[in-house]
């Protein structure tokens, strides 16, 4: 079940004054024969011991791996799905021993909670929501938000888990008159939630009252932006977006992420920074993750690129290895590691 591997990853030089450093510390191979779709890291408690575990998702199985000594991993639980394939893992911060998954084909059809029976330790799953689900995100304080339905019956719903993962409360947020495609928490403001919409608006809610506070239109240069991170500073809202539909431009290079600043009072906003690929590298944003001031993206070229959002440039670039494109990348929520996966089930863990 586990493979140990320690080697230094080859890193092509980037146009950086302070190059990032990626060290391959571990590799694990998902045993399932189906296509690998996602990875995450979370705390799991067994016999009174909380451990930083890895969760891997294939189309029809989600596995939990516990750490052994010297960066080896042991598969301890696997949840199986027979009808609808897994699309993504949805970690819920502040909840131990429970992880959510989104299932569907092209769009999300179900959200399920995965956990283990306290009685016999067997794998259990619970259907939390089914229907035409557009977006889902785990939030701090054991909350899960999702948007579902079509224009006339669009709903934005928050579920709150009890400390042990059970008993969930439900609350609805006032829906905007358009579909919400992505969500992001506002760092340091636990009652604020952002969403991006199909019409290129950013909406902001008060999670305590459910009020829709503002709808803010952003630059039409990029359609269907994905919101990854937001923080409020000096009365302004800073938002990190990616643009999966952006066209490559010769003058700007390839903008993969963008930092914009919004005045929530006036809704006026302006682009602050474009995070482009190093010269000579091509590709658009396919999939990515932002944590603190680090942004990682899988590109259409099959490579992974990492940006320091404060420095403003690409600090590490990981070409496809070996002859396999990268297909997903996540920052570990339990430490400062980068989890990178390939469709064939290989997951690589890098220290950054």
């Amino acid at each position: 079940h586990s493979i140990e591997q320690t080697e230094i990853a080859d890193l092509p030089a980037c146009d950086s004054l302070n190059p990032g450093y990626l060290q391959l510390v571990s590799k694990l191979k998902n045993p399932s024969g189906s296509c690998s779709v996602d990875v995450s890291a979370m705390w799991w408690e067994r016999a009174g011991l909380k451990e930083p575990c890895i969760i891997t998702a294939c189309e029809y199985a989600v596995s939990l791996w516990k750490p052994l000594d010297t960066w080896q991993w042991k598969n301890i639980y696997t949840w199986h799905f027979t009808e609808v394939p897994v699309l993504q893992i949805v970690p819920v911060p502040d909840v131990c021993n429970l992880v959510c998954v989104a299932l569907g084909n092209l769009e999300i059809r179900e959200i399920r909670a995965l956990f283990c029976s306290p009685d016999d330790g067997s794998e259990k799953q619970l259907l939390l929501k089914s229907g035409n689900i557009k977006a889902v995100l785990g939030l701090t304080k054991r909350r899960l938000v999702n948007s579902s339905g079509t224009l006339c019956d669009h709903q934005v719903e928050i579920m709150t888990f009890a400390e042990d993962g059970g008993n969930k409360e439900k609350q609805f947020l006032m829906p905007p008159e358009e579909t919400v495609l992505t969500f992001a928490e506002v760092q340091g403001m636990q009652e604020a939630l952002l969403g991006t919409t199909v019409m290129n608006n950013i909406v902001i809610w008060n999670l305590k009252t459910g009020q829709l506070l503002k709808k803010m239109h952003i630059d039409d240069s990029y359609q269907a932006s994905v919101c990854h991170k937001a923080y409020s500073e000096m009365g302004l809202l800073f938002v990190v977006l990616s643009h999966p539909c952006a066209k490559e431009s010769e003058s700007l290079g390839s903008p993969v992420f963008q930092l914009i600043v919004i005045n929530p009072k006036t809704t006026l906003n302006v682009g602050v920074m474009l995070y482009c690929l190093p010269q000579g590298q091509a590709g658009r944003f396919l999939e990515g993750d932002v944590k603190d001031h680090c942004a990682a993206a899988v590109l259409t070229s099959g490579a992974i690129a990492i940006w320091d959002l404060l420095l403003g440039h690409c600090t590490a670039f990981l070409p496809p290895v070996p002859d396999q494109n990268w297909s997903f990348v996540k920052w570990s929520g339990t430490d400062s590691h980068l989890l990178a996966g390939q469709k064939d089930g290989n997951i690589f863990i890098y220290r950054y």
């Binding site: 009652e191 009020q211 503002k214 009365g235 809202l237 005045n263 009072k265 302006v270 602050v272």
Partner: peptide
């Protein structure tokens, strides 16, 4: 970018918008 392009700024924007928005 120029802060002036963004209009009047309030440090307390979240509470102010919450008191202005429909319940």
């Amino acid at each position: 970018c120029n802060k002036a392009d963004l209009g009047p700024i309030s440090l307390n924007w979240f509470d102010e918008l919450s008191s202005e928005a429909p319940p």
